[in-house]
Amino acid sequence: MGKILTIARRELAGYFFSPLAYVVGALFLCVCAFKFAPPPGFWAGPREWFILVPHQQASFRGLFEMMGTAMTIAAPLLTMRLVSEEYRSGTIETLMTAPVTDTQVILGKFLGVMGFYLILLAATLIFLALMFVYATPDVGVVIMGYVGMVLLGAAFLAVGVFASTLSRYQLLAAAGSIVILAIFQLLAGSVASHTTAPISEIAARINTSTYMSNFARGLFDSRGLVFFLSLTGGFLFLSIKTLESRRWR
């Protein structure tokens, strides 16, 4: 456990030296802010899409749903360098000749990016504070929404870690995980509504956006819980195996 945390701490510190992490974090928060409290000029437009608009019931629900979708891009960008960069710079050689196991490396890196993600998520609490000032938010929605975001984040970041173990090129890693995440978050929904059973059934089950909207509605979606946790576990397992397979190629 000590070594996992050592690696996680190094990765987390690395994010604060990476311009990309700041850009991704800032964009993520800007998009959220835009949705949460748009400048008055946008009030005339599709005002239902926004949250804090005068004479309209404000709910956090939409914000959580949008944050989930934003993670389709943010997670790949945050995770792409994790293992790819080690391959490219050759530091993988010093890392893997130290007495650490492949599992410790992957879990450490995953926890590192998870830490950064949690900090990012914590920054969105400022919206919550504003919400308490200007409206009376539904506490159930807020709690379950954040639970959903942590679960979704873990799953998406695990997918990103996996893609990063596949290639020494960060760009390929990012593209790979965007494709995988787009299938779960964007494609599955439309496939489910345009096909018949059994394909529609399967598509509906892997649709992460429905799970996320359930959480955002304040529901405890046990299916969602299980799905996100299995996604996290499954992709971390695949990452460990890919890292191991490097020894046999």
Partner: peptide, 26 residues
């Protein structure tokens, strides 16, 4: 082990890097 190209993490400081490696080295 010192690999041929001496790969190291560019963003870290010498001391920080050595402490990190010391932790990995038990």
């Amino acid at each position: 082990y010192m690999p041929e190209s001496v790969p190291i993490y560019p963003e870290m400081r010498v001391r920080e890097y050595l402490l990190f490696r010391a932790a990995l080295r038990d």
